[in-house]
Design a protein around this nucleic acid. Structure first.
Lengths: 168, 168
DNA sequence: ATAAATTTTCAGTAAATATTGAAAGTTTAG
DNA sequence: CTAAACTTTCAATATTTACTGAAAATTTAT
């Protein structure tokens, strides 16, 4: 398989995967493009390779930067901005976990906490069913939260571990 | 907080969470409704509580059944079908993991495998960057797959463990 | 067998989401 | 300072996705 063909297929698949996970398809495709690029790309490179508009490119690159999945690269003597992706896939995974935990799990836990007490007879079957379910989901969410924190933390340690090695 | 109010808030939040994870909002809301219901519900109960059409209800309930998150319940002497959700939240989590692994991770691993060999000089920087990234993502995906399998398997063991206890 | 009850399907429509492109804004070189 | 290079914004538009409702299919009771 030719490189360009393989790249196109990777970009396409990553886009599909992203969209199944609530991430805008184009954002995932730009991420894919940067993940497999040898060198940082410009907005125009991205526009060209994906056949998308300047505005679309700009907005999605910015979202990737917000997630810390992509960084601006300044090349001395060049006017344009270049972009490169974080390539350590473990780092990518933990960045995504961190963002999603913050934006989705944490708010859910907050809501569940507020729902744990409802007015009325605690022996009423409807109230019992509700509080029982909420309690269990809450418990599960708490475990998930702690597990994610551990993974994210471990990754940081691993990162620092590697970083330190560079200077030994 | 009143029960009805709390239920409505839970359904709403679960719907938002689902939609952020690539699950249709209505499907998540129906799931939420069944999760906190004391007794199985009919199509009409669901239609009424969520103010959605019969067709929409039918399609989303069927999707939930496909995921094994919901089951039909036949009540003797009743013509209508009733639906109830799996309430063990660990079971729910592993069912979702299993389905998503099957539908998303497994196809991605297949694609990555096909992309691991590209024509051309392996020292070319573009080819090197591409194969290196794909190799790492593939490795990560493999680890993720094995981890998920372990979790899903553990859950089955746990399930059988509980099941066996019932007959001791 | 048949008709009432219930479920399923799906074409048409509505709603949500993503994209464009051009104007406005910003930065930098000279 | 100012004009060219470049980036950002956002209203209009296009695309994708979800929903409705009524007709068709199926099931069940008699």
């Amino acid at each position: 398989m030719k490189l360009e063909e393989a790249k196109a297929e990777f970009v396409q698949s990553w886009g599909v995967l992203g969209s199944q996970w609530g991430i805008n398809r184009t954002m995932a495709q730009i991420h894919a493009l940067l993940l497999v690029a040898a060198l940082p790309l410009t907005t125009e490179d991205i526009m060209g390779q994906l056949s998308i508009s300047r505005g679309n490119t700009n907005m999605n690159v910015r979202d990737l930067i917000d997630w810390n999945l992509v960084q601006k690269v300044i090349i001395p003597g060049e006017r344009k901005e270049y972009f490169k992706a974080e390539k350590d896939i473990w780092k990518v995974a933990t960045l995504i976990m961190y963002q999603r935990k913050k934006r989705e799990l944490d708010p859910m836990i907050k809501v569940l906490g507020q729902l744990s007490e409802v007015d009325g007879d605690p022996n009423d079957k409807d109230i019992k069913a509700f509080t029982e379910s909420v309690k269990n989901i809450n418990k599960f969410a708490g475990q998930a939260e702690r597990t994610l924190d551990t993974i994210i933390k471990a990754e940081e340690n691993w990162f620092w571990g590697s970083f330190i090695k560079l200077f030994k």
